[in-house]
Design a protein around this nucleic acid. Sequence first.
DNA 1: TATGAATGAGTTTTCATTCAT
DNA 2: AATGAATGAAAACTCATTCAT
Lengths: 239, 239, 239, 239
Amino acid sequence: MLECAVIEPHPRKMKKAPVKATVSNGNEQPAEARRKYDPEETKRNILEVATQEFSAMGLSGARVDAIAERTNTTKRMLYYYFESKEGLYEAVLEKVYGDIRTLEQALNVEELEPEEGMRRLVEFTFDYHDKHRDFVRLIAIENVHSAKYITQLKAFKSRNVSIVNTIENLLARGAAEGRFRPDIDPIDLHLLISSFCFHRVSNRYTFGAAFGRDPSHPRLRTRHRDMIVDAVLRFVREP
Amino acid sequence: MLECAVIEPHPRKMKKAPVKATVSNGNEQPAEARRKYDPEETKRNILEVATQEFSAMGLSGARVDAIAERTNTTKRMLYYYFESKEGLYEAVLEKVYGDIRTLEQALNVEELEPEEGMRRLVEFTFDYHDKHRDFVRLIAIENVHSAKYITQLKAFKSRNVSIVNTIENLLARGAAEGRFRPDIDPIDLHLLISSFCFHRVSNRYTFGAAFGRDPSHPRLRTRHRDMIVDAVLRFVREP
Amino acid sequence: MLECAVIEPHPRKMKKAPVKATVSNGNEQPAEARRKYDPEETKRNILEVATQEFSAMGLSGARVDAIAERTNTTKRMLYYYFESKEGLYEAVLEKVYGDIRTLEQALNVEELEPEEGMRRLVEFTFDYHDKHRDFVRLIAIENVHSAKYITQLKAFKSRNVSIVNTIENLLARGAAEGRFRPDIDPIDLHLLISSFCFHRVSNRYTFGAAFGRDPSHPRLRTRHRDMIVDAVLRFVREP
Amino acid sequence: MLECAVIEPHPRKMKKAPVKATVSNGNEQPAEARRKYDPEETKRNILEVATQEFSAMGLSGARVDAIAERTNTTKRMLYYYFESKEGLYEAVLEKVYGDIRTLEQALNVEELEPEEGMRRLVEFTFDYHDKHRDFVRLIAIENVHSAKYITQLKAFKSRNVSIVNTIENLLARGAAEGRFRPDIDPIDLHLLISSFCFHRVSNRYTFGAAFGRDPSHPRLRTRHRDMIVDAVLRFVREP
DNA sequence: TATGAATGAGTTTTCATTCAT
DNA sequence: AATGAATGAAAACTCATTCAT
């Protein structure tokens, strides 16, 4: 049967240009309509939507189609700029880190006296996680993926190093003044601080379900902020 | 007959060994006699493998095929016993909670004096997260999915309630004795404790990447345990 | 805008089972209907169709959908058994080689006297290419892809070696008898023979277009067969 | 502003250097003056790159983007000048034929005595295929596509006709002199000659893989050239 | 003449789930 | 109770081509 069945190559045409239907879609842009050709805006738009999707659904749970749909452009552009779903995910991580960097610059605790500086640092860390929930969720998601993608970011290590340096400086000055205990490891302390700040955001769903309290409620938020400051100060103070 | 081309499905994917390979006992039996159907064992085996897969890959990232492959049985059985991927995931959550309950019974702090009881409670919480990493990862995964599945578990709420009751009791007794501050919210305190215990497990990949330290290393583990006990006691103590 | 837009994870359901439409499609199978579950038949069927498609369209030109459509099964099975388009292509190459091997066994020229053996060998080579056009086309296609896939086949090298051995034996015996020239390289001669046999099949379209002759026409076929035998014998004969 | 994340489209694909980079001449001109639009040069450049891509990848395997990338111009220009991928492919075929035509004029065997003329003709055919590998590959590719495109070329038929005429003339003169056999069909002989010359180029990858010999190696090349001349002369000579 | 951004339709591949035995 | 084969829907990704400037 097979061997001699001389199948003339069935002629199949090459891709042709699609018919273009330039019909207006009814809901026209308002007066200050976006420019049609604005790559930076396109990228930003894609990244914005992708950030939401990835942080809401996880890397595997996110759908490229879902992202594209909520974008001002098409799925194709997403691949045009970011190569692949993973590439887009990485770009999202990068962007989220970039966004945060600016904020971080503002933290200037080196000039404050140690206890006040420590208070500021903790408050900053708290606010920072509280404000950047997408960031927190993405880090949690990264841990599900064994931090495979985030480790490739240059920004990643440096950022953590800088915060630890800040803590180290505070601890050293406090100890020199006899106000702080001298034997505290800065990284350990950073872990203590960020654990709380991170956890109440990352685990707010299970927390809410378990205790019937939404940790993002303003009253709870304030109380938590005070508490972690208090706990940290009590922890570092001599004796 | 394609004598020379016996094509097995997906010949290129490396097959990991099933989790519990039924070892041959040497004196083989005729086919019918040897194969002893053991539904309980089959279910246990499936759950075990599924726990690994879900906790390693997340709910969306997990693959039914991957689970079935490492099982002693087939994909069909997985559906036979657990209905669907989601059903299996729920069963995994349930199992993980069940496993833990036993351990939890052992914690009897009500008889200890408040400070010692608090120490025990924190240590218990620490050890418990440290030992049950799959549990921790699954909770983190649940939060990616807005705690959709875990809230359905009866075990879930009760467990958290019981731990909070324990803390409440300790705080009340401590306050009565004038040793603890009287204004501490037990749920807040639980959040403080569990944040640290949870975070160092759930985020160990990003932590490791950021600081070049593996938080599961024994030395670090001990230090962290001491630290959280210390921090909590300093936090609750009067004044 | 972005940062604080708390997007509640839009609930999206997991894949559900499709509705099964078990309607009869009208053109029922004849009495000797295929068994529904016959993996060997399924694979054979896929390979048969794939052979046609690849040999007609080339590797890049072939369409997985087109193959699946002409199959008794679905596209999914194609991936079930062959992993990928490339995997299927490789399996096709393998099968085509397997098919041919049998035929080749029949060639027993070692017992014939050199000249008669050489005639048989050339005729065999001619017939073999003439009959296996898919094979010829696939080899041509492989050369477009720099023989990337075929080199992985075990069957490939051994087959060529055996035919060269056969030629070598004939040449040696012929030279010993003083009938053949002693300085002929067997691989070169194989190239001379197979060039012609291959070319008139592989290039029949351009040949037809250039000269208005279809080289597969029976009359031309016979003349070509005689010609290559004649040319080879004249080439090898002393002096 | 995503200051730290300037995302270029497809940042991961390595870009090969364009085929002819317009080197800066040191003393730069103002923008308008420096850029000299040279349509002919642009077309030539595109064709050159396209020839490489098509002959290396086949018609379906070739990528318009890949061609444009290695060009000094953009994809749009490619469509501007050649309409479509197919149009470009046809232009490549045409160019390749055009390139060759010049060479072919030089062959003047009508003045030589038949045997010497035949030798020259074969050598010419050999050299011509050996030198124009792209041409050979493109013909092979055309046969994968049933010679759909090449048949439209005016140059195509005429070229083949003229070579056959040349052979016919040689055969006739040789037969008249009693040196050549009188019953040889010129088209068949052309097929014999070109088969070998074509095949060793078109199938050099599978040949190399099968026999561990690269047919384009100078030593092998010379031997092959001598062989085909020898074989043809022995074939045409009386008796 | 020239260009980078944009696109829609197609193409390959994956996945949870079910069927026939 | 158990199984390997089978499946449709959806997901990721690609490609030739065109638009707006």
